[in-house]
């Protein structure tokens, strides 16, 4: 799975989670850049990602997430791409 594909899929998840159509995903995008991105929304995003890619992020991986780029790296590693 290419990074471009992952960004496209994540974009869809973000648009559904925040109900906003104008979120531009970039690697350095983080919670402070998006209104409403709190710890609950963070969990929603992770669960949606887990469901979409049929993967499970462990506690250490979750703790290491600081921005969208980190999330894409974890997905890439877990789905065997990269």
């Amino acid at each position: 799975m290419s990074e471009t594909e992952i960004y496209a899929a994540l974009g869809e998840i973000f648009r559904d989670v925040f109900l906003k159509d104008d979120i531009e995903l970039r690697p350095e995008l983080s919670a402070k850049d998006v209104a409403g991105w709190d710890s609950f929304k963070q969990i929603d995003i992770i669960l949606a990602v887990e469901e979409k890619y049929r993967i499970k992020l462990n506690t250490r991986e979750l703790d290491s997430l600081n921005n969208v780029g980190d999330l894409v790296r974890v997905i890439t590693a877990k789905t065997g791409g990269g």
Partner: peptide, 14 residues
Amino acid sequence: PALWHRAKQEISPA
């Protein structure tokens, strides 16, 4: 259990 530790959610959002 991970979500319990992270957010004290007995019931998973899923």
